[in-house]
Design a protein around this nucleic acid. Structure first.
Lengths: 188, 188
DNA sequence: TAAATATAATTAGGAACCTAACTATATGAG
DNA sequence: CTCATATAGTTAGGTTCCTAATTATATTTA
């Protein structure tokens, strides 16, 4: 009886403050250990959530990406262009093609060529796809709600505020070093 | 001049409260829209952070997974068994094998067979691997610190507390429905 | 001691993501 | 009208993760 999924439980290995301090000390860096801890914890939480999300959706025969595509389709009267889906979901058109292939194979969406523009092939939510969303909605939303159940209403507001600011700060990872994150007004 | 990477910027499409409400209303569900919003925002933030993290590490010729493996090795005197790495990083041994293959090809780690137990092949951080970590540390930690720069010290503490509780709640996605993680302070 | 079982690492094959290159169709400049 | 260019979607090939099966080595049991 070999137990292959011990690992799953160990994702709970949460980064500690001493760990952060040790890393900083090793190279004599002038950074705040608490700040590093926040960043590390958020990364760990994001990974854990992504992983849990895949397990959750797999119970309905979907993946996170396929569910998001279906939900976006539902939010747009059941019909969209692949390029619109890519934009809404923040993934490339190539990835959308793959997800559609997969969903079409399962009968949850279908493709239709446009007469307007011969290059376009819009994606349509089938009745079976709509049924899938309908069936999973109660459990799906109940679980999402339960996820934040340890926070009361006020705490959720505070969390939303703080998370929003940290999310803005994510650009510091990829942007120019020393440039403050831009305000939330999109400008370019 | 075709612009293939417009998508990147659109990952900023943040879930809104009206969106959450619309989804809930569609199926007449009895869940709190704000709770769903928190969950959706956290998922979006996690995905965005994961993506930014890959871009960040790719500037040093690494990926998030390869960096984490190297860092864990450094935290353990530069030598570990693949199974220990898998446990520490929360990934499977199969994935560790792939990461090691990759890192070994780049000369950042090497493998050594054990004389104790013929099945084991420990992983060693090479001088080149250590050098890589040393070189990237200042920029890496500076960027992590900058990421949470929009939060003051008190706010970071609050965020850490709230994030910790939400992280506990993630098990609600995969665990038994109706089993609360601990006690539920909220009232609805 | 021999056979059954457990364990360490790897290999094989799949899914979701990516970038780059390709095909077909549309559009715009001479 | 024609040719260059832009755009929509797909295909090809890469990476990181996964699960399941495989190989080799230990360990336990009968």
């Amino acid at each position: 009886m070999n137990n292959n999924n011990k690992i799953i439980n160990d994702i709970d290995a949460i980064p500690s403050l001493v760990q952060s301090k040790r890393q900083i000390d090793r190279y004599n860096l002038d950074v705040d250990a608490q700040a590093i801890l926040v960043a590390s914890r958020l990364m760990a939480a994001g990974a854990k959530l992504g992983h849990a999300s895949e397990i959750h959706f797999s119970k309905f025969g979907l993946s996170t990406g396929r569910y998001r595509l279906l939900a976006d389709l539902e939010d747009n009267e059941g019909e969209e262009l692949p390029s619109q889906l890519a934009e809404h979901l923040g993934i490339t058109r190539a990835t959308v093609t793959g997800l559609i292939d997969n969903l079409e194979r399962d009968g949850l969406v279908s493709r239709r060529s446009s007469s307007d523009d011969g290059r376009q092939r819009s994606v349509i939510l089938t009745e079976e796809g709509a049924k899938k969303l309908r069936e999973m909605a109660p459990e799906h939303f109940a679980r999402l709600e339960a996820m934040v159940g340890l926070l009361n209403i006020e705490e959720r507001s505070v969390f939303l505020d703080l998370l929003g600011r940290v999310t803005q700060g994510i650009s510091a990872l990829t942007g120019e070093l020393g440039s403050k994150p831009k305000e939330n007004i999109s400008n370019e």
